[in-house]
Every structure is written in C-alpha cells, then in structure tokens.
C-alpha cells in the first residue's frame, strides 16, 4: 500500500483559548449562583428562627444537653449556675432556665447552644480576675440567646454545609475554598451579632450589680493576649477586641451607667 507521509497543519482538537479566562468566568458564575442561593436560604433560616417554638428548641438542645448533663455538677458549675440565675432570673424572659456547663478546652472561649445551654471553657475561667468579668461573659451569651443568634448560627452553618456538599461532594478542594469564601461573608454578619450581644451584656451587668465595672476587662485581656493585626480580624467571627471595647464604652457613656468597686472572684475559680 502506498503511504504518503503528511504532517497535520493545525490541531483541531486543541483550542488556543486561554484557560485562565475560562477559569475566571466559571469561578465568577459559580460564586454568583452560590451567593444568590446562600442569601435566599439565609432568609429562610431567619424566618424559621423567628418562628421556632421554645419546645422545639428544647428538643434540639436535648442533643447537646445529653452530652454535657452527665455526671454530678462540679462546685464551679454550681457557682456559675448561681451567677447565671442572678443575671437571667431563675426563669428567663421566655420562661426557660438557662444552664451552664464547664468544658475542658484549651481555647479561651464560651458558646451558646440551642436549648439554653452555655458552655464555658475552663481556659477562660483561669483567665478571668473578677466576678464582674465572669458575669460579663455569661451575660454576653445570654445576649446571644435574647437575639436568637445561637439558632441562627446553626441554621446558617447548616445551609453552608448542605450547599457545598450538594454542589461539590464531600471533601474536595473547591468545596473548601467556597466554604471559606462564604464564611468570610458570614463573618461580617456574626460580627454585628457579637456587638449586639456585648451591649445586652452591659445592660444585664448594670441590672445585677448596679454598676458596669469589669465590663471591658475580659476584652482587654483578650486584646493583650492576641497581638494580631486588624487584617486577621476582618476574617474572624468576632470583631477586633478594641473595636468592641470602644463600642461598649460609648454605650456606657450614652446610658450613663456608672463604674464602682468590682466584686472579688469566688476562690473556687482560682
């Protein structure tokens, strides 16, 4: 058979279109779609949260309570519970009793969970210096309950998770990337929540002690502890501590709250 060697002039399969352009077009499109879905679902969560009955919340809270309610309450927990009851009233505004649990954890943090459960990490207890400071932390969490942030946080977190899993499947690198981008949007939202909870906590301190000393102590500690720049805080769920302190101080002035002697911390917490 006669063979005629010939070379192909151009490659029809391989296009010369820039892959970078394709990448950005697709990425932009995807971000746009996700943002729209996310905002829509966010509204849905907001609607559900404002209508969720305390009974159902109690039911949800049951999942957490079982984990933390086990065993005898420690002395510290009993003392904290007293403080909390003083702040919130034996029964809260919505007729619910808030419960506090101490958890072994190296982070200086506390959390509000559905069903009226407050978790205090033991690392936080070792940081506080006065009862007022500890009360502020508890009152801040109560502020989250008053604003129903604890449910909102869970709802929105769930939406994020479902969304990314649905689109990318579990555990792919793109999914990680988009979760992060959306979380950064989320962060702006939660920073507002934190500031609101702070102001509510100041009100509760004033009601319990008749003055607001120690309200900013905890945040002062934190801002000394972490020497991070403002940029890092843009991505954090909590506003820069200094910003929060300023906001609290302005609020104290505007409400004409006074500063007095702080109450010493119960030796139990030493």
């Amino acid at each position: 058979m006669k063979y005629t060697p010939k070379e192909l002039q151009d490659d029809v399969t391989i296009s010369n279109a820039s892959p970078l352009k394709e990448f950005f077009v697709l990425l932009g499109g995807l971000l746009g779609i996700l943002l729209v879905v996310y905002v829509a679902l966010g509204f849905a969560v907001e609607l559900v949260v404002s209508r969720l009955s305390p009974e159902y919340e109690e039911f949800l809270g049951g999942f957490f309570a079982n984990r933390y309610d086990q065993g005898e309450k420690s002395e510290q927990e009993r003392r904290l519970q007293q403080l909390l009851d003083d702040l919130a009233g034996k029964k809260g505004k919505d007729g619910r009793r808030y419960r506090v649990h101490v958890v072994q954890h190296p982070n200086v943090n506390a959390a509000a969970l559905p069903g009226g459960h407050i978790l205090i990490f033991d690392a936080l207890i070792s940081e506080v210096e006065s009862e007022n400071e500890l009360s502020f932390v508890l009152a801040h969490e109560l502020g989250h309950f008053a604003n129903r942030d604890h449910l909102r946080g869970f709802g929105r977190g769930l939406v994020l998770l479902v969304l990314s899993t649905a689109v990318f499947g579990q555990d792919s690198s793109i999914s990680g990337f988009f979760l992060n981008s959306l979380q950064n949007v989320e962060v702006q939202f939660s920073q507002r929540q934190e500031k609101k909870a702070d102001l509510r906590a100041v009100d509760l301190l004033q009601r319990k002690y008749g003055h607001v000393s120690g309200a900013t102590d905890f945040l002062e500690d934190i801002s000394k502890m972490d020497k991070k720049g403002r940029v890092a805080y843009f991505f954090a769920t909590h506003p820069y501590p200094r910003d929060r302190i300023t906001a609290i101080e302005e609020y104290i002035v505007s409400q004409q709250y006074v500063q007095k002697e702080k109450t010493a911390l119960d030796p139990l917490f030493r």
């Binding site: 058979m1 006669k2 063979y3 005629t4 060697p5 010939k6």
Partner: peptide, 8 residues
C-alpha cells in the same frame, strides 16, 4: 473501492 494511498 480501491485504496490508492494511505496517511496513517
């Protein structure tokens, strides 16, 4: 048909 030549 008859194949005249091929090109690979």
């Amino acid at each position: 048909k008859r194949i005249a030549e091929h090109f690979g």
